[in-house]
Design a protein around this nucleic acid. Structure first.
Lengths: 148, 148
DNA sequence: GGGACGATATCAAAGCTTTGATGATTATCA
DNA sequence: TGATAATCATCAAAGCTTTGATATCGTCCC
């Protein structure tokens, strides 16, 4: 059927690792009443108060439309607030509310357990190696995409 | 805010790599009129004719409910057919149709370009290293999840 | 000033995913 | 045989994501 056996496809290994990661994080942040995308948005928001929705989308690696949905749900629950930018009338400044900050800290305390476990699994050299190999994956993917 | 800087969180690197991978594959299989989940289902189906929806879901690492939606869309377009199992009346046997096989081959020809580029980026030792490091990630995640 | 350009936000449609719950069927075992 | 457990399919609700299209606003440059 295909000219490449499934065992050779590294993509499956990456996907499996990411899927285990996101599943674990989902369980972790759910205790704070958050989804993973909501947690990611709040996390980025904490480091960039007043950021625009489009910029937040870029930070979270999703489309602006996807981020709009996430922000809508977060705003309905009072975890973020969006106010018109004083100069750029077309921009909505988004900020964490106090309940949003609390939710983020609750979720992050549990999410860090996962990240800490991964970090502790490797020494510095191994960590750098994994990072470098994943980065080369990205380069190869981009290279292949451009000539698709 | 947090006791772990974002730079130390390896999860972001894994997520980024997977996101680039899935985005590239999305572009690749779209030429065949398929989504990535549809492509994954057809791919697994090609190797396991007559498999049940639940088993297919396990093979694709999704829930049975998610697979139901994917199969419904594939069936509406005539790419798969589902027939009652002769003995187990509760099971629907799913098989590729001829148009489904054609779509899969068209999609796979392009998806392989991505996987081939990744495979060619590494020599055997690097590939084994990446696999091993990702596997250890999975172990660490499962270990942390169990005590969450 | 006025037009091109880029960034922002938003509406709409289609599809995927998860959690939770339900009902039907088959297998296992006392 | 009859009860328990496991498997399968499905309905429902909520949320995320993408692609495509549209409207507004600010900046740059002629």
């Amino acid at each position: 059927m295909v000219d490449m056996p499934a065992q050779e496809r590294l993509g499956l290994d990456i996907k499996r690792a990411e899927q285990e990661l996101i599943a674990a994080k989902q369980v972790a942040v759910r205790a704070a009443g958050l989804t993973v995308p909501q947690y990611a948005a709040l996390f980025a928001l904490a480091g960039n108060p007043g950021i625009s929705g489009a910029a937040l989308a870029r930070a979270c690696l999703v489309t602006p439309q996807a981020m709009t949905v996430v922000l809508k749900n977060l705003e309905e629950r009072g975890l973020v607030e969006r106010t018109p930018h004083p100069w750029h009338r077309n921009v909505l400044e988004t900020r964490l509310t106090e309940p949003g900050r609390v939710a983020l800290e609750t979720a992050d305390a549990r999410a860090v357990v996962i990240e800490r476990a991964i970090a502790d699994e490797f020494d510095d050299e191994e960590r750098d190696t994994l990072r470098a190999l994943l980065a080369r994956c990205g380069e190869a993917i981009r290279r292949a995409s451009s000539e698709l």
